[in-house]
Amino acid sequence: MSGHGNNRGQDTTIKKRGEKHYVMLYTRYERFWHWSQALLIFTLFFTGFGLHGTHDLIDFRTAVEIHTYAAIALIVLWIFTTFWNFTTGQWRQYLFKEGVLKVIRFYAYGILVGEPHPYRKGLQRKQNALQSLAYMGFMIFIGPALWASGIVYLFYDLWSSYSWSGNGLTVIAFLHTAAAFLMGIFVIIHIYMTTTGKTPTHYIKTMISGYDSIELTKAEVAYIEETHAVSMKD
């Protein structure tokens, strides 16, 4: 279905790095982070919109309890992951990369006519430029908007005695709701993008197993063979 796996591409500006190898690209912690975060965000989304009155599928009291516990769990996960990102240096994955416009052009047009993906995944280049930008936006904008407003909301009792607390609650609720809509949009597009791999489920399988087939330079292969720093299946 997706065209970027075949060799019909005319774009010769992308240099081939080397032979393809099946390597562990997403470590156990990354996958744990990703999937538990996914579960929590779905839970928060469902209960949150229940609280908002969008649907009646869950009663208010249960929704409050689940929403609060899930939010606390997600915050703990994020604190831990922030620690992980900085100690492992993985935070660099989210830095701005060149070629965003090329990636956008690919998803808008190239993908339809069978061009190859303009970005080659590498051992230390897990995300394309658009992905990095989107995840960065998620981590420094949508995420914090949600957890910051959520924490202030949760601890309403600490500031309820101020005269501005009534208006404050309105502002906080507004920010939280707005950020939740943004999160919803992110999740919808994110999930859709997972279907754009070699097969519609390729990326999902990758995110479950952690292994993907990527081009490795000779030096990388040698390094892996010498140190076993990264698990490689072939």
Partner: peptide, 13 residues
């Protein structure tokens, strides 16, 4: 005043 579950922000929604 804003009350969760009862109120929403009309145009934001």
């Amino acid at each position: 005043f804003y009350m969760p579950g009862r109120d929403s922000f009309h145009w934001l929604d």
